[in-house]
Design a protein around this nucleic acid. Structure first.
Lengths: 341, 341
DNA sequence: CTGAAAGCGCTTACAG
DNA sequence: CTGAAAGCGCTTACAG
């Protein structure tokens, strides 16, 4: 029934009949405290519902308890929470909760190198940077400032320079392209975004390799992510405007919204999906599950990635070296109407 | 080129040739500092890129700089970031950014009264509680603990007890029901969720009043939010299993996923949408924009609500009384195929 | 095994 | 108008 102030370490020390030092030692398992004393302190702490002030601890230990999440493509997307790009939202939500469970607080940050950024953006204990660009200045900044950070997707120009969870693996590409082949595709076109990040670049590279191995000429196109569904017309123009022999019988888009646009553009020209053309996306969005036809996508497991990233970030924040660079979870296939004949 | 520690108030004081006290006064506009001195301090601060430690300030002022966002329906939804329920995601994203812009950090919190909650969840400077339930224990807890908070949607049992941004206004109901009428509806059925929150209860009440005014018998049903699209069958059974004279020619669901389910269930029974049945939703989700037929929804402006909520929460956090209880932004209508004959 | 003291970087009564 | 001092709630060398 204590409606007022929270108990401090002094209150607890007094109640347990010891000094604040001993309380601190007992609760943090430091120093040499007799088990009898430690037990008494812990019991009193529970009884008083004592919770050490992270603020005071932070001041002492020069920590803020803040984890910063920097979503690099944020500004290239058309709204703050872009429709159809739920990948990042799932990352944010899961990361927030994972951080909280570990007594950290997650802060969505724009660009920490910008002058006048809020304190927390500058003073986070560790940073998670999603989809860094080639030679990304944010990574350069963080590394110069000696801030602990990891990236989701490597900086394509500095692959092994920083800790990162890789993206666009050959395994995921293989998963989708062999599915398309089994579904009847003989000539697969690839559509990436134009952002220079590992996701686009590594996927493209892996796809080229796969196509080469399987004797297919690469049919490749890059379209700005921000065009979303509107890109469909241009993509279909590109691949179906040319002579017959060049036409693909499957289009694999990295972003779900491009795939949606492709389906619509194809249907409007009498190209049937999936009968005449298979369409699939790598990073799916909700709409791909409900539009007609539904579109096959990869499930890239953003929740798992977010959770792993937060756990790694906390290790870094607390000064523990990472045992191993974490591997991304294997994607799985969500097969839907657009690739089911 | 300072790669190491940040400047502290002492560094700045030394550089400006004054005491830390004077620095503090000058930068915070307190005390009486000569304009000449203040100007010098500000100039040096900018030069050294001095940023006061929010941690130290927080310890001193007993503030954490944390705003907690409690999404009450969180656990009743089927995943952490439920598909089709993008309303909350848009709130979270916008609130995160708005908080950051004001030097606060937003923390997604589950239940702050649960024993063992993280520090931040217990020590936030202010709380925002979305969709509280009737006699919500979380509100009781916060109010007993004297924590500043506001709610998005009032506690239906304690309407004026706490600061809240109202939901389910008669104006929004009127907007949708008169649209349905103009679109040809003569007998409108209403489907709410089962959570006992203001959104469900106030909307239902306003809808009943509207129907009464317009000479329609109320055709009403409540279905658990968590059933999502699966609820469609039961809803259509309910309204189309009965004798002819009771059948609605329009169904208005509060949640977008229910509306999706209704459309699917109706179509599978040969009830055409919109020809035989108009369908609309209040809280739309992405899928309603892309499924076929697309479904008419209200845009409840979650971004605006989130931003307003954060601004109010900060006022409360900093001990300033709210000038006025904020009004929710008026919803607008997104008319789509499901109500266009 | 235990505790007094200093200090993390600020703010704020108070004295001058 | 300016600054020395105390204190916010912790942690950690250090002394006993």
């Amino acid at each position: 029934m204590d409606f007022s102030a929270r108990a401090t370490i002094r209150d607890l020390a007094k109640a347990a009949g010891v000094s604040p030092t001993t309380v601190s030692h007992a609760l943090n398992g430091k120093g040499n405290v007799s088990e009898r004393t430690a037990e008494r302190v812990r019991r009193m702490a529970a009884e008083m519902n004592y919770r050490p002030s992270e603020i005071a601890r932070g001041l002492q230990q020069q920590r803020t308890g803040i984890l910063a999440l920097i979503i690099r493509p944020f500004r290239t997307l058309d709204t703050v929470l872009p429709n159809g790009v739920d990948y990042f939202l799932r990352v944010v939500g899961t990361a927030s909760l994972a951080a909280m469970e570990n007594n950290y607080t997650l802060m969505l940050v724009d660009d920490p190198s910008r002058p006048g950024v809020p304190f927390g953006a500058q003073a986070a204990d560790a940073y998670i940077v999603t989809e860094p660009y080639e030679n990304d200045p944010v990574l350069t900044y963080l590394s110069q400032k000696r801030k602990p950070f990891l990236t989701l997707g490597a900086d394509p120009a500095r692959k092994d320079a920083f800790i990162s969870i890789d993206e666009g693996s050959a395994r995921d590409v293989e998963l989708m392209l062999s599915h398309l082949t089994r579904a009847g595709a003989g000539r697969i076109a690839i559509v990436t975004g134009t952002d220079r990040n590992q996701w686009n670049l590594a996927t493209l590279e892996a796809a080229r390799a796969w196509l080469d191995t399987h004797g297919q000429e690469p049919l490749v196109m890059s379209v700005p992510e921000v065009e979303g569904e509107n890109a469909g017309e241009a993509i279909v123009d590109e691949f179906f405007g040319a002579a017959d022999r060049d036409r693909p019988d499957a289009i694999y888009c990295l972003t779900g919204r491009h795939a949606s646009g492709v389906v619509r553009a194809a249907l409007s020209r009498g190209i049937r999906v999936p009968q005449d053309l298979l369409v699939a996306a790598a990073s799916g969005s909700i709409q791909n599950r409900v539009e007609s036809p539904t579109i096959t996508t990869l499930d890239l497991k953003p929740e798992e990635i977010a959770r792993t990233a937060v756990e790694c970030a906390i290790e870094l924040a607390e000064g523990r070296p990472l045992q191993a660079v974490p591997a991304p979870p294997p994607a799985t296939l969500d097969i839907r109407e657009s690739t089911t004949r």
